[in-house]
Protein backbone atom coordinates (compact mmCIF):
# COMPACT_ATOMS: atom_id res chain seq x y z
CA UNK A 1 0.00 0.00 0.00
CA UNK A 2 2.86 2.39 0.81
CA UNK A 3 4.30 1.76 -2.65
CA UNK A 4 0.94 2.53 -4.22
CA UNK A 5 0.55 5.71 -2.21
CA UNK A 6 4.02 6.90 -3.20
CA UNK A 7 3.25 6.07 -6.82
CA UNK A 8 -0.03 8.01 -6.69
CA UNK A 9 1.72 10.94 -5.08
CA UNK A 10 4.31 11.00 -7.86
CA UNK A 11 1.49 10.86 -10.40
CA UNK A 12 -0.29 13.77 -8.78
CA UNK A 13 2.71 16.05 -8.52
CA UNK A 14 4.12 15.40 -11.98
CA UNK A 15 1.17 16.91 -13.79
CA UNK A 16 1.53 20.63 -14.14
CA UNK A 17 -2.17 21.46 -13.95
CA UNK A 18 -2.37 19.87 -10.50
CA UNK A 19 0.51 21.99 -9.28
CA UNK A 20 -1.03 25.13 -10.77
CA UNK A 21 -4.36 24.36 -9.16
CA UNK A 22 -2.77 23.64 -5.79
CA UNK A 23 -0.79 26.89 -5.93
CA UNK A 24 -3.94 28.74 -6.83
CA UNK A 25 -5.79 27.11 -3.92
CA UNK A 26 -3.08 28.31 -1.54
CA UNK A 27 -2.44 31.77 -2.97
CA UNK A 28 -6.09 32.75 -3.34
CA UNK A 29 -7.13 32.72 0.36
CA UNK A 30 -3.75 33.99 1.51
CA UNK A 31 -3.91 36.92 -0.90
CA UNK A 32 -7.45 37.77 0.15
CA UNK A 33 -6.53 37.57 3.84
CA UNK A 34 -3.40 39.67 3.40
CA UNK A 35 -5.11 42.33 1.29
CA UNK A 36 -7.98 42.53 3.77
CA UNK A 37 -5.73 42.90 6.79
CA UNK A 38 -3.53 45.45 5.04
CA UNK A 39 -6.36 47.69 3.87
CA UNK A 40 -9.11 47.24 6.47
CA UNK A 41 -9.90 50.13 8.77
CA UNK A 42 -7.99 49.15 11.93
CA UNK A 43 -10.68 50.57 14.19
CA UNK A 44 -13.33 48.22 12.81
CA UNK A 45 -11.20 45.14 13.54
CA UNK A 46 -12.36 42.66 16.17
CA UNK A 47 -11.35 39.22 17.41
CA UNK A 48 -13.07 37.46 14.47
CA UNK A 49 -11.74 39.51 11.55
CA UNK A 50 -8.81 37.32 10.51
CA UNK A 51 -10.61 34.01 10.91
CA UNK A 52 -13.79 35.10 9.12
CA UNK A 53 -11.82 36.27 6.10
CA UNK A 54 -9.65 33.18 6.13
CA UNK A 55 -12.57 30.77 6.48
CA UNK A 56 -14.56 32.52 3.78
CA UNK A 57 -11.73 32.56 1.27
CA UNK A 58 -10.70 29.08 2.38
CA UNK A 59 -13.99 27.66 1.12
CA UNK A 60 -12.90 28.68 -2.38
CA UNK A 61 -9.79 26.56 -1.89
CA UNK A 62 -11.99 23.70 -0.78
CA UNK A 63 -13.73 23.77 -4.15
CA UNK A 64 -10.35 23.78 -5.89
CA UNK A 65 -9.32 20.71 -3.87
CA UNK A 66 -12.45 19.08 -5.23
CA UNK A 67 -11.41 19.97 -8.76
CA UNK A 68 -7.94 18.52 -8.15
CA UNK A 69 -9.62 15.33 -6.93
CA UNK A 70 -11.89 15.20 -9.98
CA UNK A 71 -8.99 15.75 -12.37
CA UNK A 72 -6.76 13.22 -10.63
CA UNK A 73 -9.05 10.44 -11.73
CA UNK A 74 -10.67 11.78 -14.91
CA UNK A 75 -7.27 12.55 -16.45
CA UNK A 76 -6.37 8.91 -16.02
CA UNK A 77 -9.28 8.08 -18.27
CA UNK A 78 -8.75 10.86 -20.79
CA UNK A 79 -5.03 10.08 -21.05
CA UNK A 80 -5.41 6.31 -20.88
CA UNK A 81 -3.12 5.90 -17.88
CA UNK A 82 -5.92 4.17 -15.96
CA UNK A 83 -5.10 1.04 -17.93
CA UNK A 84 -1.52 1.10 -16.73
CA UNK A 85 -2.62 1.96 -13.21
CA UNK A 86 -4.86 -1.07 -13.10
CA UNK A 87 -2.37 -3.29 -14.91
CA UNK A 88 0.22 -2.39 -12.30
CA UNK A 89 -2.29 -3.00 -9.55
CA UNK A 90 -5.36 -5.03 -10.50
CA UNK A 91 -6.81 -4.69 -7.01
CA UNK A 92 -9.16 -1.84 -7.84
CA UNK A 93 -10.33 -1.01 -4.33
CA UNK A 94 -6.73 -0.58 -3.26
CA UNK A 95 -6.03 1.61 -6.29
CA UNK A 96 -8.98 3.81 -5.38
CA UNK A 97 -8.08 4.02 -1.71
CA UNK A 98 -4.43 4.86 -2.46
CA UNK A 99 -5.49 7.76 -4.65
CA UNK A 100 -7.98 8.88 -2.03
CA UNK A 101 -5.33 8.86 0.69
CA UNK A 102 -2.97 10.95 -1.42
CA UNK A 103 -5.73 13.47 -2.18
CA UNK A 104 -6.72 13.61 1.47
CA UNK A 105 -3.14 14.25 2.57
CA UNK A 106 -2.65 16.88 -0.11
CA UNK A 107 -5.84 18.83 0.59
CA UNK A 108 -5.61 18.44 4.36
CA UNK A 109 -1.97 19.55 4.27
CA UNK A 110 -2.66 22.52 2.03
CA UNK A 111 -5.64 23.59 4.16
CA UNK A 112 -3.50 23.41 7.30
CA UNK A 113 -0.79 25.41 5.59
CA UNK A 114 -3.26 28.07 4.47
CA UNK A 115 -4.63 28.39 7.98
CA UNK A 116 -1.25 28.50 9.64
CA UNK A 117 0.27 31.06 7.31
CA UNK A 118 -2.91 33.07 6.79
CA UNK A 119 -3.72 33.36 10.46
CA UNK A 120 -0.18 34.11 11.59
CA UNK A 121 0.39 36.68 8.87
CA UNK A 122 -3.06 38.24 9.23
CA UNK A 123 -2.70 38.71 12.97
CA UNK A 124 0.85 40.02 12.61
CA UNK A 125 -0.20 42.58 10.02
CA UNK A 126 -3.13 43.84 12.08
CA UNK A 127 -0.86 43.97 15.11
CA UNK A 128 1.73 46.02 13.31
CA UNK A 129 -0.95 48.37 12.11
CA UNK A 130 -1.82 49.01 15.73
CA UNK A 131 -5.11 47.15 16.07
CA UNK A 132 -6.30 47.15 19.66
CA UNK A 133 -7.87 44.26 21.52
CA UNK A 134 -7.78 40.51 20.90
CA UNK A 135 -7.35 39.26 17.32
CA UNK A 136 -8.32 35.67 17.99
CA UNK A 137 -11.27 33.97 19.65
CA UNK A 138 -12.28 30.69 21.18
CA UNK A 139 -14.27 29.28 18.23
CA UNK A 140 -11.48 29.82 15.77
CA UNK A 141 -9.56 26.58 16.33
CA UNK A 142 -12.61 24.36 15.83
CA UNK A 143 -13.64 26.24 12.70
CA UNK A 144 -10.15 25.92 11.28
CA UNK A 145 -10.16 22.18 11.93
CA UNK A 146 -13.52 21.97 10.19
CA UNK A 147 -11.99 23.72 7.17
CA UNK A 148 -9.33 21.02 6.99
CA UNK A 149 -11.97 18.31 7.29
CA UNK A 150 -14.23 19.83 4.65
CA UNK A 151 -11.24 20.29 2.35
CA UNK A 152 -10.42 16.60 2.60
CA UNK A 153 -14.04 15.59 2.11
CA UNK A 154 -14.56 17.76 -0.96
CA UNK A 155 -11.40 16.43 -2.63
CA UNK A 156 -12.71 12.90 -2.07
CA UNK A 157 -16.07 13.98 -3.44
CA UNK A 158 -14.34 15.30 -6.54
CA UNK A 159 -12.61 11.99 -7.00
CA UNK A 160 -15.88 10.08 -6.58
CA UNK A 161 -17.70 12.27 -9.09
CA UNK A 162 -14.73 11.94 -11.45
CA UNK A 163 -14.85 8.17 -11.15
CA UNK A 164 -18.50 8.21 -12.11
CA UNK A 165 -18.29 10.62 -15.04
CA UNK A 166 -14.76 9.67 -16.23
CA UNK A 167 -14.63 12.90 -18.14
CA UNK A 168 -12.79 15.99 -16.85
CA UNK A 169 -15.19 18.75 -17.96
CA UNK A 170 -18.32 17.00 -16.78
CA UNK A 171 -16.81 16.02 -13.44
CA UNK A 172 -15.74 19.61 -12.77
CA UNK A 173 -19.11 20.91 -13.91
CA UNK A 174 -21.03 18.60 -11.60
CA UNK A 175 -18.73 19.41 -8.72
CA UNK A 176 -19.04 23.16 -9.15
CA UNK A 177 -22.74 23.23 -9.95
CA UNK A 178 -23.69 20.99 -7.05
CA UNK A 179 -23.16 23.62 -4.36
CA UNK A 180 -23.64 26.69 -6.51
CA UNK A 181 -26.71 25.72 -8.50
CA UNK A 182 -28.32 22.39 -7.68
CA UNK A 183 -28.57 22.93 -3.95
CA UNK A 184 -29.80 26.47 -4.32
CA UNK A 185 -32.36 25.38 -6.89
CA UNK A 186 -33.54 22.24 -5.16
CA UNK A 187 -33.48 23.92 -1.77
CA UNK A 188 -35.49 26.80 -3.16
CA UNK A 189 -38.10 24.56 -4.72
CA UNK A 190 -38.41 22.24 -1.76
CA UNK A 191 -38.59 25.05 0.75
CA UNK A 192 -41.61 26.39 -1.10
CA UNK A 193 -43.26 22.99 -1.01
CA UNK A 194 -42.25 22.11 2.53
CA UNK A 195 -40.55 24.52 4.85
CA UNK A 196 -37.31 26.37 5.39
CA UNK A 197 -36.07 23.45 7.48
CA UNK A 198 -35.29 21.60 4.27
CA UNK A 199 -32.08 23.59 3.90
CA UNK A 200 -30.39 21.79 6.72
CA UNK A 201 -30.55 18.53 4.75
CA UNK A 202 -28.66 19.91 1.79
CA UNK A 203 -25.18 18.40 2.07
CA UNK A 204 -22.99 21.21 0.75
CA UNK A 205 -24.86 23.94 2.58
CA UNK A 206 -24.56 22.05 5.80
CA UNK A 207 -20.92 21.17 5.17
CA UNK A 208 -20.00 24.77 4.45
CA UNK A 209 -22.00 25.92 7.47
CA UNK A 210 -19.50 24.04 9.60
CA UNK A 211 -17.01 26.71 8.56
CA UNK A 212 -18.93 29.44 10.36
CA UNK A 213 -17.09 30.87 13.27
CA UNK A 214 -19.99 30.39 15.64
CA UNK A 215 -21.86 27.14 15.47
CA UNK A 216 -24.51 27.80 18.10
CA UNK A 217 -27.35 28.21 15.64
CA UNK A 218 -26.42 25.23 13.45
CA UNK A 219 -28.92 22.38 13.40
CA UNK A 220 -26.36 19.63 13.73
CA UNK A 221 -23.62 21.62 15.43
CA UNK A 222 -20.21 22.01 13.81
CA UNK A 223 -19.02 18.43 13.87
CA UNK A 224 -22.48 17.08 13.27
CA UNK A 225 -22.57 19.12 10.08
CA UNK A 226 -19.15 17.83 9.03
CA UNK A 227 -20.34 14.30 9.80
CA UNK A 228 -23.55 14.74 7.81
CA UNK A 229 -21.61 16.04 4.82
CA UNK A 230 -19.15 13.19 5.29
CA UNK A 231 -21.97 10.65 5.15
CA UNK A 232 -23.05 12.01 1.79
CA UNK A 233 -19.54 11.76 0.50
CA UNK A 234 -19.17 8.26 1.85
CA UNK A 235 -22.34 7.29 0.01
CA UNK A 236 -21.24 8.85 -3.29
CA UNK A 237 -17.79 7.28 -2.86
CA UNK A 238 -19.23 3.83 -2.22
CA UNK A 239 -21.36 4.17 -5.32
CA UNK A 240 -18.30 5.30 -7.31
CA UNK A 241 -16.23 2.44 -5.95
CA UNK A 242 -18.80 -0.16 -6.94
CA UNK A 243 -18.92 1.28 -10.47
CA UNK A 244 -15.13 1.50 -10.56
CA UNK A 245 -14.84 -2.15 -9.66
CA UNK A 246 -17.38 -3.37 -12.19
CA UNK A 247 -16.78 -1.27 -15.27
CA UNK A 248 -14.26 -1.86 -18.04
CA UNK A 249 -11.23 0.36 -17.72
Amino acid sequence: MIALIRSEWLKLRTVRSNITMACFAVILPLAITLLTTVFIDVYSVDDATVSVVLLGSGSLSVLLFGIIGALAITQEYSQGTIRLTLAANPHRIRAYVAKGIVLAILSGGLAAFIILVGNTAGVAILDSRGAVGKLSNGDMGQAYLALIAIGILVSLLGMAIGTLTRNPPSAVTVLVLWPLLFEALIGGLLSVAFSESIFKWLPFQTGLNALRLEDYELDFGRWGSVGYFGLWILTVSMFALVRFKRRDA
Binding site: S7, E8, L10, K11, T14, V15, R16, S17, Q75, Q79, G80, T81, I82, R83, L84, A88
Partner: peptide, 15 residues
Protein backbone atom coordinates in the same frame (compact mmCIF):
# COMPACT_ATOMS: atom_id res chain seq x y z
CA UNK B 1 -1.12 5.05 -22.46
CA UNK B 2 1.07 7.81 -21.05
CA UNK B 3 -0.06 11.21 -19.77
CA UNK B 4 1.00 13.83 -22.29
CA UNK B 5 2.00 16.29 -19.58
CA UNK B 6 4.41 13.99 -17.79
CA UNK B 7 8.02 13.43 -18.76
CA UNK B 8 9.03 10.01 -20.01
CA UNK B 9 11.06 9.31 -16.92
CA UNK B 10 8.31 10.35 -14.53
CA UNK B 11 5.88 8.20 -16.45
CA UNK B 12 8.07 5.18 -15.87
CA UNK B 13 8.90 6.21 -12.32
CA UNK B 14 5.34 6.16 -11.02
CA UNK B 15 4.80 2.85 -12.71
Amino acid sequence: NAHSGRTARNHLRWL
